[in-house]
Design a protein around this nucleic acid. Structure first.
Length: 154
DNA sequence: GCCAACGTTGGC
DNA sequence: GCCAACGTTGGC
């Protein structure tokens, strides 16, 4: 399946949509992902792809806004940084294990499209709910349309 | 803070 | 290669 859009999770205490807005050029490398399935999805992201910014482990969980992919994945620098919590001794610059695309802020929604609202739709059968620990999730065209419809009602 | 889901590690 | 133990994620 070719993803119509992506959903990227982050904890707002660590890096939320407001951090992205405050970042230089309102852009960031999406670093720190240390799960192979998620890694493979990060590698599949293409320039121009749409990505929803999902807040996890927060008082209000759900989609807070959206981003666009501005650069395809490069080796995640944090895997080589011994001082980083994301350091991985098994990875080398010659054979990096982890990769990060670059994302740019597009918009923040007037309110968070909550997980409860998402759960009321056919998204209940999407990876967001079926594989809820996965932090990078591909969305099909129909899943993206459901989200767009919910956004119009915000 | 609790706990279910589930990915990873390591012994055999 | 199997599987138990363990660690992490993330909703509530």
């Amino acid at each position: 399946m070719k993803a119509a859009a992506w959903l990227l999770k982050s904890e707002p205490d660590t890096f939320g949509i407001d951090h992205l807005i405050a970042a230089p050029q309102q852009a960031t490398l999406w670093d720190g992902v240390r799960n192979y399935q998620a890694r493979n999805y990060l590698l599949a992201m293409k320039k121009g792809d749409r990505a929803f910014f999902y807040h996890s482990s927060a008082p209000i969980t759900g989609i807070a806004g959206e981003m666009t992919v501005i650069a395809e994945a490069v080796p995640d620098p944090s895997q080589f940084d011994v001082n980083s919590p994301y350091f991985d001794a098994k990875s080398t610059p010659e054979k990096p294990l982890w990769f990060s695309p670059k994302l740019k802020f597009v918009k923040k929604y007037p309110e968070v499209l909550t997980r409860q609202n998402l759960a009321k739709t056919a998204l209940k059968n999407s990876l967001l709910f079926k594989s809820f620990r996965l932090s990078v999730i591909p969305l099909s065209v129909s899943e993206m349309k459901i989200i767009d419809r919910l956004l119009q009602k915000l």
